[in-house]
Nucleic acid binder design. Sequence first.
DNA 1: ACCTGAACACCGTTCAAGT
DNA 2: ACCTGAACACCGTTCAAGT
Lengths: 194, 194
Amino acid sequence: MNDEPKRYHHGDLRRALLDTALEMLSRDDGWQFTLREVARRAGVSHTAAYKHFSDKADLLAELALVGFERLREALIAARPAEPESLRVAYLEMSAAYVQFGTANPNLYRLTFSNEARISANPRLKQRADAALQVLIDLFVGGQRAGWLRERDARAQANAAWAQLHGLVLLMIDGLLDEPIAAASLAIMLEGLEA
Amino acid sequence: MNDEPKRYHHGDLRRALLDTALEMLSRDDGWQFTLREVARRAGVSHTAAYKHFSDKADLLAELALVGFERLREALIAARPAEPESLRVAYLEMSAAYVQFGTANPNLYRLTFSNEARISANPRLKQRADAALQVLIDLFVGGQRAGWLRERDARAQANAAWAQLHGLVLLMIDGLLDEPIAAASLAIMLEGLEA
DNA sequence: ACCTGAACACCGTTCAAGT
DNA sequence: ACCTGAACACCGTTCAAGT
């Protein structure tokens, strides 16, 4: 027999709620969904969510955690195994960053929306740092290989991160089109090269 | 006699509502105020606002307009009359940009929040472009004076804008402190210089 | 013309109660 | 342990009505 009458959500309503919210972020426009709507789509009463999240901000923080993690994975996936130049590695990874943001505008916005108070949340701050670390590693490696101007790699990584973050948000907002964003990336790269 | 009993808001409730909202943005934390609260603080029934704004998004769009205008003014005010180098002009103006954003976090966030659908609103798009134009002018002048690498000035301006935008947002979110932001600006500048 | 009050369809959150 | 239903104090928006 199959189990149409749902039996207490196989014990993982928490996961189900997160997945439902992530799906809403990927489909709908806007990241400002309501808790009640998430519960509704998960097929559960809206008060059930409070057994798994202390409040809406808590749910948002959990989703931001996922956002930072996926961003980090996207950067790592784009990192060439044996880069023959900073140019290649940087262009691949920055393109992956912009691609991730523009392909997941709602999740990206939510991740950085600070409804979740990123800097006050140690777990979130740590995941943000983990994503940034991928860029720092890139620049540390680039300097070691002599491809980069010798400046503080952390500052270089933050300079790049800020630009990538800004590019993604301006593109999401329709204030910057792809060709100009690509030209901006090239200008940044050129300025970093040795 | 003085006029404690308010008499229909001197005919400019629209202005009063905008000013009240701007004051709330400068005082409170968060930019997600409610329409009802604005009306309340302006001493008027919450439905009165609808005589002056078609809906809440319309009010937000008007505030974003103010945000872009003030940003432009801050950049212009920081522009040296007779810059003796790109370095001086760029550092002054980029510092002014970051200063504006971090000093007015709620207004800055709201301006770029896109609740007002910037790119779909011709007036807003135009003001955003006007603010960007100040940076473009800086780079056009910088190239003419031979201080800048000869690249498309518009792309250079957008590269800088994206970084400034990202820096401000990351700083507001507590993900970047002032020293690293300053180092990031210096790295960007260095990369642009001839 | 400009503003109000009641009303509608929502929210987030709490809490006693059910299984 | 996990979920529900009713309730509370809010929203944004509409609309008939007042001056």
